[in-house]
């Protein structure tokens, strides 16, 4: 028996909008720790890892570990039927091949349930070790989204370079090239408007802008984004999901050969 009640149902709506472009089908795993997902995009270039910790739910019942295969486009269709202020409850019986999404309006005057068929998905689970990153950049998520969008009108790839001067996003294409430098800036009115750069050593990596733009679909989830870079590893683009978890996007770099 599985029953997860999320008072801030809009978070789940935003999570689906954030990942459905990148991943088509995925297994949602439910355990005592929380509700999680790990999936690669179809090209196996990017990976998304979602965790919504059990403590973040108003009610969390998961009698035994359960993996539910879902088509994310179909989940998104279901969740779009929930109001932004609705409380969302996920329910599944042991051995059932369906999951039920229950939507309750805040004043309890409307209750809807949508039952969706589950699917069998063969998914590969990757071990992601804890890593030391050469540079970690925390910046406003809207600013990062703007930069990715602007650069993708010029080129297909972005070079992200972190030095003591700041973080530089560069691209080049047929019509020309572009460089955007963001310097550390902590003298702002609100902490979420700050750009904070922690650098152990300079790093410069090249990534496909198409994927970066896809990651920025998570922007409505969080005012800030954290970009962790290491010359030996995929970049991690992380958006917090309120105080209950995160979405982490991993993207393999392009390497000059």
């Amino acid at each position: 028996m599985l029953e997860l009640r999320l008072v801030q149902g809009s978070l789940l709506k935003k999570v689906l909008e954030a990942i459905k472009e990148l991943v088509t089908d995925a297994n949602f795993d439910c355990s005592a720790t929380g509700f999680s997902l790990q999936a690669m995009d179809s090209s196996h270039v990017a990976l998304v890892a979602l965790l919504l910790r059990s403590e973040g739910f108003e009610h969390y019942r998961c009698d035994r570990n359960l993996s539910m295969g879902m088509n994310l486009n179909n989940v998104s269709k279901m969740l779009r039927c929930a109001g932004n202020d609705d409380i969302i409850t996920l329910k599944a019986d042991d051995g059932s091949d369906t999951v039920t999404f229950m939507f309750e309006s805040p004043n309890q005057d409307k209750i809807a349930d949508f039952e969706m068929k589950l699917m069998d998905i063969d998914s590969e689970h990757l071990g992601i070790p804890e890593a030391e990153y050469h540079a970690i950049v925390k910046m406003p998520s809207a600013e990062f989204a703007r930069i990715c969008k602007d650069l993708s009108s010029i080129g297909d790839t972005v070079v992200i370079s972190v030095t003591k001067e700041g973080v530089k996003f560069s691209t080049r294409g047929d019509i020309g090239n572009a460089n955007i430098v963001c310097r550390q800036n902590t003298t702002v009115d609100k902490p979420e408007e700050a750009t904070i750069i922690e650098m152990q050593e300079p790093v410069s990596l090249t990534f496909a802008l198409r994927y970066m733009n896809s990651f920025t679909k998570a922007t409505p989830l969080s005012n800030t984004v954290t970009i962790s870079l290491s010359s030996e590893l995929p970049v991690v683009v992380e958006y917090k999901v309120a105080d209950m978890g995160y979405i982490r996007f991993y993207l393999a770099p392009k390497i000059e050969d």
Partner: peptide, 14 residues
């Protein structure tokens, strides 16, 4: 010539 690396070349299957 730029090569797009594969995520599986960094992380191992569990």
């Amino acid at each position: 010539w730029v090569l797009q690396k594969h995520i599986l070349s960094f992380f191992e299957l569990e």
